[in-house]
Nucleic acid binder design. Structure first.
Length: 335
DNA sequence: CCTTTACCTACATC
DNA sequence: AGATGTAGGTAAA
């Protein structure tokens, strides 16, 4: 099954959104084209944003045929058991809604870019060159465990680790001619199994192996009947509650908790302060923090509060544009 | 409250 | 070549 979703490249730049470090399992088909291969919950997709729509400035021509993203659903996701097997087959509208939800298309990004550019010349210069960066609404389970892997780590290695989590403990979804067998993200219950830590250590997860296993067991202890539900339910709690609950998990500090709040729990003003954001804050916004030798709990909170008061309720989205501009692979583009 | 240190590994750099 | 530093941090002292 395939179809289109109508969205202008300024509202959603697919490539920038998928490679800016918020997710780790989207892959490009080849370097030439602009076809992306990835998984949204249990659905395997190919997504293509028309190259012309990125190169040509259509102005206010919102009806251009180029202003769309082509999607192709590669698996029928009917290999389930029990209730799920009886679920009605997905229609084109269902897929449109799924993608709309994943890309949070209800958020008027261009309006926000305009607003942020007006109040902040630093954002203005970077935002012009990095349009269409959206925060995805990810699966909280995958989001959480991916970012437990992210500590003191680099993006290529994090991607490898997430892939190996899926192929070791996930369920088979699809056989791809290029990427081979594709698995979904493991359930909490599988990550609780005996031997997970040593298995992950043998897969070169290092000290994160223990965090993953322990975090899964802690989540399981919160609600053994439906461990995933506990995490999803944080979407209904306020930011402070969700953040503190996440921080009760081993391997989850303030930064990882903010990543999960922002990227899968609908907390649009959560600000993950990592080394990049720390540097940005010192250089461009809060120079008095330069007196600190390292980031403290207090300065962490000060930076988050500053971004929230400066950019407003979608501060986390603004922050991700500035963060992306600071990533090494985008620096060249901005010089 | 702030600072330091150990923790795993792959890869870049000197 | 082998040491050193770094990559989206966390927890413990």
């Amino acid at each position: 099954m395939e179809g289109f979703i109508r969205v202008s490249p300024k509202e959603l730049n697919l490539s920038l959104t998928l490679v800016c470090g918020q997710c780790f399992r989207w892959k490009r088909r080849s370097k030439k084209d602009n076809v992306w291969f990835g998984i949204i919950f249990n659905h395997v997709f190919e997504l293509t944003q028309n190259i012309n729509s990125l190169k040509v400035n259509h102005g206010d021509d919102g009806d251009s045929v180029d202003s769309s993203i082509h999607w192709k659903l590669l698996n029928s996701s009917n290999n389930k058991t029990g209730k799920a097997a009886k679920r009605k087959k997905l229609s084109q509208d269902d897929i449109s809604n799924l993608l709309s939800d994943y890309f949070q298309l209800q958020v008027p990004l261009v309006d926000y870019y305009d607003k942020w550019s007006k109040i902040d010349s630093n954002f203005n210069s970077k935002g012009c060159q990095l349009p269409g960066i959206r925060i995805l609404r990810q699966d909280p389970i995958e989001n959480l465990f991916s970012f437990i892997c992210s500590s003191n780590n680099n993006i290529p290695r994090i991607s490898m680790m997430v892939d190996s989590l899926c192929s070791t403990y996930g369920q088979q979804l699809f056989d791809d001619h290029e990427f081979g067998t594709i698995y979904n993200f493991p359930s909490i219950s599988r990550l609780c199994e005996d031997g997970v830590e040593s298995k992950l250590r043998s897969l070169s997860f290092g000290y994160r192996a223990k965090f993953i296993h322990q975090a899964a067991k802690t989540i399981m202890s919160n609600d053994a009947k439906n461990p995933e539900k506990w995490l999803f339910n944080l979407r209904n709690e306020c930011y402070e509650k969700a953040h503190s609950q996440l921080m009760s998990l081993p391997g989850v500090g303030a930064k990882v908790a903010d990543c999960v709040c922002l990227m899968s729990l609908d907390k649009h003003d959560a600000i993950p302060v990592d080394t990049h954001v720390w540097k940005i804050a010192l250089n461009d916004y809060l120079p008095h923090l330069k007196k600190n030798k390292t980031m403290t709990d207090k300065s962490y909170k000060e930076i988050g509060n500053f971004f929230r008061s400066h950019f407003g309720p979608y501060a986390g989205w603004a922050h991700s544009v500035l963060f992306t501009a600071d990533l090494a692979k985008f620096k060249k583009l901005l010089e």
